[in-house]
């Protein structure tokens, strides 16, 4: 199981890459492994406003539907257009090809609530 050092993490198992005021969001290796085969993804449209802690989309495995939560509030500036056609990349490449959306962050203090890689790894080990 991978926990890249450069990323921040949520308790809902999303990862966040912070680049200035733009954050890229996806779900973690632990999340994709727990879900099993991802077969469907629903993302917001570019321009949508997302709210920290609220659902912005869903991922579905063969068995179940799971919400994906926004780690920060802000405007969606880009979505991974290829994901609906190839949702399985969330399983094979959760931290790269499986990225979901980019958000222009409204309030950088939202980032203070996120975990670093070590804290998230400890969180996952406690949950497992």
């Amino acid at each position: 199981m991978e926990f890249p050092e450069e990323l921040k993490y949520t308790e809902e198992h999303e990862w966040v890459l912070v680049e200035d005021t733009i954050v890229t969001v996806g779900i973690t290796d632990f999340a994709q492994d727990s879900l099993g085969d991802v077969v469907f993804v629903e993302l917001p449209e570019v321009g949508a406003e997302v709210v920290a802690g609220k659902s912005f989309g869903v991922v579905e495995s063969v068995k179940a539907v799971s919400d994906i939560y926004a780690p920060v509030s802000g405007e969606v500036v880009e979505i991974n257009e290829e994901l609906p056609e190839t949702p399985e990349v969330i399983n094979t490449s959760p931290y790269e090809d499986g990225w979901m959306i980019k958000i222009r962050i409204a309030d950088t203090s939202d980032l203070d609530d996120l975990m670093d890689a070590d804290a998230y790894q400890a969180f996952v080990e406690e949950e497992a």
Partner: peptide
């Protein structure tokens, strides 16, 4: 067991 290798 719900799955081993993966449902598909």
């Amino acid at each position: 067991p719900v799955q081993y290798r993966g449902v598909i």
